[in-house]
Design a protein around this nucleic acid. Structure first.
Lengths: 110, 110
DNA sequence: AATATACGTAAGGGAATGCTTACGCGTCAA
DNA sequence: TTGACGCGTAAGCATTCCCTTACGTATATT
C-alpha cells in the first residue's frame, strides 16, 4: 500500500491558475491559515481549500496543524523545474547580460 | 466586430501542458512546419495543430506561410510574464547572488 | 484539369477542472 | 456537555481540455 498514489506533482499545472499563483504570492510573505487565505478571495472557503490541495500535491506548500488551524507554508524550492525551464531561454532576451545570469544560475545550483 | 474576440493570451495556461513546452523547446532550435513538428509526437497531426493554436493565441509563437506550409516561429519575449513571476522568488533560492540577478533583470528590461 | 500535399477546423466524446452546497470530524470555549 | 469554530471532503454540475476522425480549402505537382 502506497501512502498517496493519487498525488500529482504537476508544478506547471499547479501554477497555471491565477488564484493559485496569488496564493503562493501571499504565502511567500507569511504562512496563512485557510480562513486567512480565503479572506483574500471571493470564492468559497472549500474552493480555497481545494486550490491549496493542488499546491500541496505539487509540493509547492506544506501544511502544519496548529490547534484547529492548518497553516500553509510556501516551499519555493519546488518552483525549481519552472525556473530551470524558463532560464533555458535567458539567452533569447538579452545576449549581453544573460550569460552572466546563466552563470550565476549554475553557481546557484551547485 | 472585433478581429478575434475569443483569443486567450494565457501564457501560464499555454505552458502548462508538457507537449506544448516540448514544442517550444523544438521551436527554440528552429522554425518548424506542422508536419515537421508532428514527427516528434505520437498524437495526430490535428492535435499538434491545436496545440500550436494555443501557443499562437498566447502569442508564444507566430506563423508564417511558405507555400502550402506554415512555419511556426518561437517568440521568447512572450515568456516574460513567467520569467517575471518566477524571478520574484529568486531571493528564496540564494540571497547572496540573486540580488545581482534581479538587478540584471531590471536592467535587462529597461 | 486532375491529383496529391499541407494544413485548419468542425464535431464528438471522455476526462479533468473549478466552482458550489451539504456534511462530518476534530478542536477550543462556555 | 454543549456549542461554535476551522477545516477537509463528498456530491453535483457547468465548463474546459485534449484527443480522435471527417472534411474543407489553398497550394503544388503532373
Amino acid at each position: 500500500m502506497v501512502a498517496r498514489p493519487d498525488r500529482k506533482p504537476d508544478v506547471f499545472g499547479a501554477i497555471s491558475h491565477p488564484s493559485r499563483r496569488r496564493m503562493l504570492d501571499l504565502l511567500a510573505g507569511a504562512d496563512h491559515s485557510v480562513n486567512a487565505m480565503a479572506g483574500h478571495f471571493k470564492m468559497s472557503r472549500p474552493a480555497v481549500s481545494q486550490h491549496l490541495r493542488v499546491l500541496l500535491d505539487a509540493g509547492l506548500v506544506t501544511e502544519q496543524r496548529h490547534g484547529r488551524e492548518r497553516r500553509y507554508h510556501f516551499v519555493p524550492k519546488r518552483l525549481g523545474p519552472v525556473r530551470d525551464w524558463i532560464s533555458q531561454y535567458e539567452r533569447f532576451w538579452d545576449d549581453r547580460l544573460s550569460r552572466l545570469q546563466m552563470l550565476l544560475s549554475k553557481r546557484n545550483k551547485g
